[in-house]
Design a protein around this nucleic acid. Structure first.
Lengths: 229, 229
DNA sequence: GCGCGCTGATCTGCATGCAAAATGCAGCGT
DNA sequence: ACGCTGCATTTTGCATGCAGATCAGCGCGC
């Protein structure tokens, strides 16, 4: 199910995304023991890329080393999604504050470009459009963090935002949600361009709290049909 | 200079700490190109642990992949230390808020134990005492984050707090600073025990801002005698 | 004289081999 | 019947080998 769509990816990335995906979709259950050999067999790769992927997943908290030679899938609390949104709120509100002070014209132009692309895909006509929206959204947020000109934040983001995909949000946005999200993005750009850090931070906070609320509402109703890609 | 003190460490950790140390002390200069072969020669290890260390250092932002086969030491902005303290403030204030709600009796007992050990070493009589203080301090903060019961936060912390050691702060604390820091710690424990999230967060904020101010003051005066160990 | 393509050297990504450490199971002793 | 010790197996950590990609310097053409 995840084999053919991204054609160009080196073995380590394949291993990383493959294992992570298997954890998120539940193919690898919480607490299950992992061995490099089995994973390398399952994914058709050698142990080296598997090792590197496992190392990263341990750093990110998806996998835990118990003692010596025992490695297990981590156990996730039920408030995982809420946690991710809270942490993103901390990091991204701060980032956008800095971005409002430090963003260059190029940064702002890039944001506008991404925003335009997202508008063109709203409402999304097919699955591919959803895919593009999700990726553009990530790119948008990543661009803001990059505009904050802090290598530390960027490094944190590659951990935290990747994690945020735990809940592949965009595929469950209603059109109303999507439009609101787009409006937030537009307002964020305006606030950055106006060099108004507090304005930008407030919008970002609303943006992420809205996202969190949507996920929370969804988790309350449905609990079964996840794991769609 | 970093070879004999920690006797038990596997090759990957050795590589990680070795390279990171060489970057922090300036032995590897900003922008310098790195090759696995040279590093493995320098550190007397094979390429495999070097590769894994490089991978982690890239995630943490110490090293950058330029294009294809070119890997360089990252370039650090001058406000690096300030950045680290700001990010820690975001993450740790939030952590201690959660800790104030979720900490167990064991967590609080552990904090008290660490605190007592730090008091016993204050004022520090020798270099070893400084070392112990630094480590106990890290352990204290890590314990608080762990008490927040959020794997995400913990994962973030292993990136962000490790980074914070960029500035090996404790060796430049005056006795007054040390006492204030200890008082903060004591107050943090009390606030957590009293289940007072906002109180705890405020103290943590003060604690880290005080630390940041100290570093800032130091960077303003001295700029030469760093790189001690 | 200067730019461009080409070739050799270098470097990374990945696979595999090997030794040491850990696991777990069976047989022994109590 | 139960716990413990010892051994076979498994698993990781690290080293090394190899192929493809990249880089750097040279010669050729303009």
């Amino acid at each position: 199910m995840q084999n053919s769509s991204p054609p160009k990816m080196n073995a380590t990335e394949q291993a990383y995304h493959g294992i992570r995906n298997d954890i998120l979709t539940g193919r690898l259950k919480e607490g299950e023991r992992l061995t490099e050999t089995r994973l390398s067999d399952d994914l058709g790769l050698s142990r080296t890329p598997i090792r590197e992927a496992i190392g990263r997943l341990i750093l990110e908290g998806f996998i835990e080393r118990q003692s010596g030679y025992t490695t297990r899938v981590a156990h996730f609390p039920e408030d995982e999604a809420e946690q991710v949104y809270e942490i993103r709120r901390l990091v991204e509100c701060y980032s956008v504050q800095r971005a409002a002070r430090l963003a260059t014209e190029e940064d702002i132009a890039a944001l506008r470009r991404i925003h335009a692309a997202m508008q063109a895909d709203t409402p999304p006509r097919d699955q591919a459009a959803y895919q593009r929206l999700t990726e553009a959204n990530e790119e948008f947020h990543r661009t803001i963090v990059a505009a904050a000109r802090s290598p530390r934040l960027t490094a944190l983001m590659t951990t935290a935002l990747d994690v945020s995909m735990v809940v592949r949000t965009y595929s469950m946005f209603s059109e109303k949600d999507l439009r609101r999200s787009l409006n937030h993005h537009a307002e964020l750009i305006d606030a950055i361009e106006a060099r108004a850090p507090d304005w930008a931070a407030s919008v970002m906070s609303a943006h992420l709290l809205a996202g969190a609320a949507r996920v929370a509402a969804r988790l309350k109703t449905a609990g079964s049909d996840d794991g769609q890609d």
